[in-house]
């Protein structure tokens, strides 16, 4: 109860009816009403003055502290300048405290501004770093990458024994870097086998998905079917493969720069791993 009573009193010191109105809300009893009339005059002057004298008291107390111990050390001076010094000290201290209070806000604002600039810079770098995998999100680029990967795999691995060179030529155009080395490792046995068995191989991508697409790099997963026809005895057989393909955008064109086969024997994997 006492803290509730005191608070409303200093705010509306001039008009009493308002105080009574406030009172009614907190304490609806009529008996309490007369009380503010008694308290008001006593508390109103006490609060506002309490702030000022405190500062004064501090200002006075400060010089008083060091002044007292210095007096005994310097016994000659107090005779001549006791009063001016106190006045000077008082003024200097008033000024410094005023300066202190005068600078506190600008300094705080500058510090705040610096913090906000730092925060803003952090936000901005984070905004710049928001890069994400655009596979499927960017449908045009996704379709393009999937199409290039499909074309590269189909053209590089489909061949006719009569013209294996044409296949290798196509592969050279569609593949780049590491993928060319991987391709020659995979295709090496074909050069000898194809003419020997008169092989015709058709490779078809049956399913594909782009797994990542960021900037000028992309990867895709391809499911591949392969139909091999041995024209010497017209035997044909099917096979299937799964491969992960890496693509890089070079001069506005996607090229395959990495190929990994899943479910291959250890020999071939080791051979492919040698490519850099």
């Amino acid at each position: 109860m006492p803290p509730i009573r005191r608070r409303p009193v200093p705010t509306p010191p001039t008009t009493r009816p308002r105080v009574a109105g406030l009172r009614k809300r907190t304490a609806p009893q009529h008996v309490v009403e007369p009380e503010p009339a008694v308290e008001l005059p006593a508390e109103v002057p006490a609060e506002p003055t309490a702030v000022e004298p405190e500062n004064d008291a501090q200002a006075l107390a400060d010089p008083a502290g060091p002044a007292e111990p210095t007096e005994p050390v310097e016994p000659v001076e107090p005779e001549e300048e006791p009063t001016p010094r106190v006045a000077e000290d008082e003024r200097a201290d008033e000024e410094s405290s005023a300066r202190r209070s005068g600078w506190a806000l600008p300094v705080a604002l500058v510090v705040l501004a610096a913090l906000l600039v730092g925060l803003g810079a952090w936000f901005q770098t984070r905004a710049g770093q928001v890069s994400y995998n655009r596979a499927l999100v960017d449908s045009a680029a996704t379709t393009e990458v999937a199409g290039v990967a499909r074309e590269a795999v189909e053209k590089s691995f489909s061949y006719n024994f009569a013209d294996v060179a044409a296949t290798e030529k196509a592969a050279a155009e569609l593949l780049t870097g590491k993928a060319q080395c991987q391709y020659s490792a995979i295709f090496e046995p074909v050069r000898a086998l194809a003419p020997e068995q008169k092989l015709v191989v058709t490779v078809k991508v049956v399913s594909s998905g782009v797994t990542s697409l960021e900037g000028d790099r992309a990867t895709a997963l391809l499911f591949v079917d392969q139909v091999t026809t041995r024209t010497t005895d017209n035997q044909s057989g099917g096979g299937m493969a799964m491969m992960r393909v890496g693509a890089r955008r070079v001069d506005d064109r996607w090229k395959i720069d990495n190929m990994e086969m899943f479910g291959q024997g250890g020999d071939r994997s080791a051979e492919l791993a040698e490519c850099r």
Partner: peptide
Amino acid sequence: AAGYAVWAGVSW
């Protein structure tokens, strides 16, 4: 500074 921070935050 506050304006800049708000702008950067919104853009992020």
